[in-house]
């Protein structure tokens, strides 16, 4: 991962170049407003309260769907990796659902759940669930047999075996699945917000299109970019702090 600090200079250079080209008349300002105008739009959105509403809505939906997708993904990963019912029944069903590109489920989710918050959370959940489930399954099914043998000859059994040995051993893969899930959470969030919402950064992008405000659209896109980077960085720090062994090897 590129460090945030290292991306400041290249981004600043791109912004300066963009600004210069725009003022030199080489870019069409009404379609490609320069960074100064985007910054002004961002300030305007901040002052009107629009930005904070959009941010709060988007972050809440992304976080809620992400947490639900992670919990269900890990639980079903345990189910498909360690129970025969899961392996012979649930696994093939989930495998076929996983092959559907997750955004394609959006109209169906709206049809089924309605054009409301539930369908938005659901779409984020749907995107996060699959990578977390697949990685949990692979991680749990692939735990070194000798770890389990060693634990059992120390008297570790039942749920303690799962909690103290199997899950921690699978954590590096589960974490990798969650990281993929973060990206998909934002992807599906924006798709859901673009099709029928009244707030949120995805909504702001499509609404700015309708009223022809490319400056606001680019401001919302910039906010999405920052939000995505911040989420990934925060996740990386959190993992390093609470699950240090899972990053030792990577």
């Amino acid at each position: 991962m590129v460090k945030l600090r290292q991306s400041v200079l290249p981004l600043a250079l791109v912004a300066v170049l963009w600004e210069v080209l725009a003022h030199a008349g080489l870019l069409n300002m009404s379609f490609l407003p320069p960074p100064t105008k985007i910054t002004l739009a961002l300030l305007e959105m901040g002052a009107s309260g629009e930005l904070s509403t959009d941010l709060i809505m988007s972050v809440t939906r992304a976080l809620g769907g992400f947490l639900a997708g992670t919990v269900v993904g890990v639980l079903l990963g345990i189910g498909t990796a360690r129970t025969s019912l899961g392996r012979y029944f649930l696994l093939p069903v989930l495998q076929s659902l996983r092959s559907i590109p997750s955004i394609a489920i959006l109209p169906f989710a709206i049809l089924l759940l309605g054009l409301n918050e539930v369908s938005k959370y659901f779409l984020v959940f749907w995107g996060v669930f699959f990578p977390v489930w697949v990685n949990s399954h692979i991680g749990i099914a692939g735990v070194d047999t000798q770890y389990i043998w060693a634990a059992r000859s120390l008297g570790v059994q039942g749920w303690r075996l799962l909690w103290e040995v199997v899950l921690p051993a699978a954590v590096p893969l589960i974490v990798a699945g969650m990281r993929v899930g973060i990206g998909l959470a934002f992807l599906n969030l924006v798709a859901a917000e673009m099709s029928g919402a009244s707030a949120g950064l995805g909504y702001r992008v499509s609404a700015s299109h309708l009223v022809f405000r490319p400056d606001k659209m680019l401001a919302a896109l910039a906010a999405l970019s920052l939000l995505g980077m911040a989420a990934d960085a925060a996740f990386g720090l959190l993992v390093k702090r609470i699950l240090p062994w899972s990053v030792d090897r990577s």
């Binding site: 634990a151 103290e164 040995v165 062994w245």
Partner: peptide
């Protein structure tokens, strides 16, 4: 039965 393997199988977590 306590078992000690050639590769340690200690829990890194």
């Amino acid at each position: 039965c306590g078992v000690m393997f050639q590769s340690h199988k200690l829990f890194p977590w």
